[in-house]
């Protein structure tokens, strides 16, 4: 999937850094594991993340790898007794796994956040929610980053 990296690079040029001819550092091989596994392990603190409660909304196919809209929400009463404390997003084939970590408190009342993220190529995005009792829940979504065109 080197092509996708090239693509995102080109998009980065047009959208982000102006006239600088920039290239990715490292030249990691296709689908090389980044540090996402370590990040997940550290975040979970020894707990096994359980699929559920977390809902990760991302487009199946990204319109623009440089800005992919993401919504993530967690089912929780958000009370003192039971609430989400941290909600971490990682991507498993970006140069680095970390994307963003949201922090909530019972004052939040709702555990939901929406932002826009960079995806260098087709990959899985993983959302992990840590509850105040230490339990960890997760959701994943495959997002395809394509060349585009040729459709219709």
């Amino acid at each position: 999937m080197r092509r996708s990296l090239e693509l995102s690079r080109r998009r980065a040029l047009t959208l982000g850094a102006g006239a600088l001819a920039a290239t990715m550092i490292g030249g990691a091989p296709a689908h090389a594991k980044n540090d996402s596994d370590e990040l997940i392990k550290k975040f979970a603190g020894g707990k096994e993340p359980v699929k559920g409660k977390v809902k990760l909304d991302l487009p199946e196919i990204a319109e623009n790898g440089n800005t992919v809209p993401m919504n993530v929400s967690v089912e929780s009463p958000m009370t003192e007794q039971s609430h989400v404390t941290d909600l971490m997003i990682v991507a498993d084939a970006n140069p680095r796994g970390g994307v963003v970590t949201f922090r909530f408190s019972p004052l939040s009342g709702v555990a939901e956040a929406n932002t826009r993220i960079r995806l260098a190529e087709t990959q899985n995005v993983i959302a992990l929610a840590k509850m105040n009792d230490g339990s960890v829940f997760m959701d994943t979504k495959l997002v395809k980053v394509t060349i585009g065109g040729c459709g219709g």
Partner: peptide, 17 residues
Amino acid sequence: FSADIEPAVSANPYMQF
């Protein structure tokens, strides 16, 4: 509400909650 942000968040960061 808060967010710890990495380079994988897009330019002109948008945050909705």
